[in-house]
Simulated scan of single mutants.
Amino acid sequence: MTGHTVRQCSSRLLLSLLAFNLALTAGCSSKPRTTRYAASGLGSACYAKALPTVGEGGLAWGDTLSMARQKSLNNCIRYASRSGGTPGTCQVVLAECKH
C-alpha cells in the first residue's frame, strides 16, 4: 500500500512541476523578444576600406570615421600578410559615414 501511495505522490509531483514549468514558459512567451547581441556593424555609422599594392585588403565598420579607418588598416595588414601581399603598403582608399 505504501509503494502505491509513493508512486501516486511522485507522479502528481512530477505533473505539478511540469504544469508549473509550462505556465512559466507560457507567461514569458508573450514578452517582446530582445536581441542580446547586436550584429557586427549594425550600430556603426562609418566604414572604411584599406588596400595594399599586392594582396587582400580590409573593410571595417566603426562608430567614428577614425575608428573605421584604423580597423580597416589593421585588417588590411593582417589579410595582406596572410595572402602573400605587402602589408607595409596598406592605405585607406575609401572612408565615409552613413547619414
Rank of each mutant, 00 (worst) to 15 (best):
M1P: 02
T2D: 15
T2H: 11
T2V: 13
T5C: 02
T5A: 12
V6R: 09
C9R: 12
C9P: 00
S10N: 05
L14M: 10
L15G: 02
L17F: 07
L17D: 02
L17V: 13
L17H: 05
L17E: 01
L18F: 12
A19M: 13
A26V: 13
A26M: 09
S29I: 10
S29C: 11
S30F: 10
P32C: 08
P32H: 08
T34F: 13
T35S: 08
Y37R: 10
S40C: 09
S40M: 12
G41S: 12
G41P: 10
L42C: 06
L42P: 00
A45P: 00
C46M: 06
Y47S: 06
A48Y: 00
A48G: 00
A48I: 04
K49T: 14
A50C: 05
A50W: 01
L51T: 10
L51G: 00
T53W: 06
V54M: 06
V54Y: 09
G55N: 08
E56D: 15
E56Y: 13
G58W: 00
L59R: 06
W61S: 05
G62C: 02
D63N: 12
L65Y: 04
R69F: 02
R69G: 00
Q70D: 12
Q70N: 12
K71G: 01
L73R: 00
N74E: 15
N75S: 08
Y79D: 07
A80P: 08
A80L: 07
S81F: 03
R82A: 15
G85H: 10
G85A: 05
T86L: 12
T86C: 06
T86D: 15
T89Q: 10
C90D: 06
C90F: 10
Q91K: 15
V92S: 03
V92L: 05
V92I: 10
V93D: 06
E96L: 11
C97D: 07
H99R: 13
H99L: 12
